[in-house]
């Protein structure tokens, strides 16, 4: 189908975008890469009155290294992240996951901010940001604030963004020497939405410290498997009990089914992706 009609504005700087967004009377959508919003509009699941195209706001497109962190502007595209030496040097979890985020032609348009603001439970980026302990900076006409990724993602397509706010940037810590990362997802076709996926970050793995196991596409939002993290802490990853503790933890996790698989299948697939990822990290 074709998108329903809408009004279109293309501001050339952030201040004008925020002015336009500061309007409680109209149903507004921000257009970033458009790789999720355009399909939703073509299906008429989204029918905004006003579309604010952020592709002219150059100040939202950057990748910066400062001290111990990397800050990425909301309009940085996935293909830019893949090509960035700053990312490949300091954010190895992104390097592992980026080839799995949709297809090359989609990565040429899709943006980090778009994925964050949409909060699709099947998307990789929210899970990666939770695993990394990222901070999301949001801005409105009157104020700017920082929200931890942990608190930002609330539910299916639901975030902590308030009226008149947009995602300005995402800040992730640089990887340190002992940090180890893993990523894996199961898809019917490479690049499609995952049936189940996991992003894992560990402060160290021999023994395990600061472990974060973030499952996505199995629930209403990416969620940590805290029971397993606690059991594995201080142990060796390749000890015989590791997988058994993960399986036990999975029985207490709130799985939600979708069109592809029911909750029970998701639980099984979650076990598979975690096992394969942990094996790859040893």
């Amino acid at each position: 189908m074709k998108a329903a009609d809408f009004a279109y504005e293309k501001p050339v700087d952030l201040a004008s975008a925020l002015d336009l967004l500061n309007d409680e009377d109209r149903d507004i959508q921000l257009l970033a890469g458009g790789q999720s919003l355009m399909p939703m509009m073509n299906f008429r699941l989204a029918q905004p009155e006003l579309l604010i195209d952020l592709n002219g706001v150059d100040e939202l497109n950057f990748i910066e290294e400062e001290g111990e962190v990397i800050t990425i502007g909301a309009m940085a595209r996935y293909s830019q992240l893949q090509a960035s030496p700053i990312i490949s040097q300091h954010v190895p979890l992104f390097t592992l996951a980026l080839p799995h985020i949709a297809h090359a032609a989609v990565r040429n348009r899709g943006t980090i901010g778009g994925s964050v603001a949409l909060a699709d439970p099947a998307a990789e980026m929210p899970a990666l940001l939770i695993a990394l302990g990222a901070t999301i900076t949001v801005i409105s006409k009157s104020a700017e604030r920082e929200i931890s990724a942990r608190d930002f993602f609330i539910g299916i397509y639901e975030t902590a963004l308030g009226n008149g706010e947009l995602v300005k940037s995402v800040t992730v810590p640089k990887a340190k020497k002992d940090n180890v990362y893993g990523f894996y997802e199961l898809t019917r076709r490479h690049g499609d939405y995952a049936m189940a996926g996991v992003a894992i970050a560990a402060g160290s793995i021999d023994p395990v410290s600061d472990l974060k196991i973030v499952l996505f596409s199995v629930s209403d939002k990416p969620r940590r498997l805290k029971d397993a993290e606690a059991v594995l802490d201080g142990k060796d990853l390749d000890n015989a009990d590791a997988h058994a503790s993960v399986k036990r933890a999975l029985t207490k996790f709130e799985f939600q089914g979708d069109l592809n698989a029911d909750a029970k299948t998701k639980q099984h697939l979650a076990g598979v992706v975690i096992k394969r990822t942990l094996e790859g990290m040893v």
Binding site: Y8, M38, P39, N55, A105
Partner: peptide, 11 residues
């Protein structure tokens, strides 16, 4: 390379 269906002509 991009998806022609996911970009508006005006863009």
């Amino acid at each position: 390379m991009v998806r022609g269906c996911l970009m508006l002509a005006v863009q």
